[in-house]
């Protein structure tokens, strides 16, 4: 609490400097952006519509709970969980979709549009993500005053 009060005191002293940029915070973001590779993180994020935020696909009945099982995802490939995937595993599948040697329903339409370098970098990106269990979002009753 004492720290809290003294901080407010300092804040009052420094009021005229609030418009100055905070070098420290910008530097933290710069380090994070460099670590993440901004090109790859935004590309990887666009995979989330099917594969979940940071590769953590939702476990849902419609997909079958078995699809979170890696072996099943191997055979059916649908909405595979990408978080924590072995980079070699990811790369092998994507290159297979890309050259047509691996059978796909949808993924060939994506893999063919990516460069080999992007596929390799996506493999690293997804391998670094922690697997987190994701339940489907709970729906609500529509309010009477909605459009």
């Amino acid at each position: 609490m004492k720290q809290f009060q003294s901080a407010w005191f300092l804040a009052a002293l420094l009021i005229t400097s609030v418009s100055l940029p905070d070098i420290g915070n910008a530097a933290e973001v710069a380090v994070f952006s460099a670590e993440q590779n901004i090109h790859i993180r935004a590309l990887a994020a666009s995979c989330a519509a099917c594969h979940g935020t940071l590769g953590n696909a939702v476990e849902s009945d419609s997909r079958g709970s078995s699809a979170v099982n890696k072996a099943d995802a191997d055979t059916n490939g649908a909405n595979a969980v990408l978080a924590g995937i072995a980079p070699a595993d990811f790369t092998e599948k994507m290159l297979g979709f890309r050259d047509g040697s691996r059978k796909a329903t949808v993924m060939h339409h994506h893999a063919k549009g990516l460069s080999v370098a992007e596929i390799n970098q996506l493999a690293v990106h997804f391998s670094q993500q922690k697997r987190v269990a994701k339940a489907p979002l709970k729906p609500q009753v529509l309010n009477a005053d909605h459009d």
Binding site: A48, C50, T53, A57, V58, S60, R63, A78, P136, L137
Partner: peptide, 8 residues
């Protein structure tokens, strides 16, 4: 599954 994932 697309819908579940994009909603989440």
């Amino acid at each position: 599954a697309w819908a579940q994932n994009i909603w989440a």
